[in-house]
Design a protein around this nucleic acid. Structure first.
Lengths: 106, 106
DNA sequence: CGGAAATTACGACGTACATCGTAATAGAGC
DNA sequence: GCTCTATTACGATGTACGTCGTAATTTCCG
């Protein structure tokens, strides 16, 4: 049986909270990574910050409703709530993930 | 003839910058107001902060590509770049504007 | 049981930034 | 020209938070 960490229900997800979560560059990077690997733990994510910081970011992402986290022994693999987000805010997450990089300058 | 303040081109708009702009509650509120009134100046917006602060926020919104500002005498009426944003990030702005308020608690 | 690994809880530190007050600038109208 | 209004430029201030280091907790495994 699979156990999951506490997370907001679909209709509890606040768009302002989601935007605040996505506003941080490192968290946006985590979201993009999770969109590729489908599931990953904090230590497995290859990021230029300490694991305790990654853990903090993933917590923020889960509380905002962006990711769901499974309990697997001592590991806590997380995955993007793509379908949930698509239902709650159609087009939001997908347009962020498929966005073209900005043209120079800036 | 209409003059406009400098703003990023469509393909110069960065999704990360847009998200950072929308992350602030007051700026999100401004975006929602502009979505209703179609065009407004800083002083016309009824907000619980000083006008200099509103001006700052509108500048951030313009630099991020969310609003365009027209020069009309001493006034600087701004409007949402809805069509531009829809073309650049389909579904992003619209899903934010039409989002249902979150169910309690939180 | 003992040790290693994953995660998190906690406190501390820097810094980015939202906000304000004031002053400077610019246009409109008398 | 003078005044009024709208906007912004600038500096100051307080606070939120991203990051780190360390310790505590939990689980797995030999």
């Amino acid at each position: 049986m699979e156990t999951w960490m506490a997370q907001p229900d679909l209709d509890e997800i606040d768009v302002a909270t989601v935007l605040q979560a996505l506003a941080d560059p490192m968290r946006l990077r985590i979201v993009r990574l999770l969109a590729e690997v489908e599931e990953s733990t904090c230590t497995a994510l290859d990021l230029p910050v300490k694991v305790s910081t990654v853990s903090h970011h993933v917590n923020v992402l889960r509380h905002s409703g962006l990711v769901s986290t499974r309990i697997d022994g001592t590991a806590r693999p997380s995955r993007l709530r793509r379908d949930d987000l698509e239902r709650r805010f159609p087009g939001l997450l997908s347009s962020i993930l498929t966005a073209t990089p900005p043209r120079l300058p800036r």
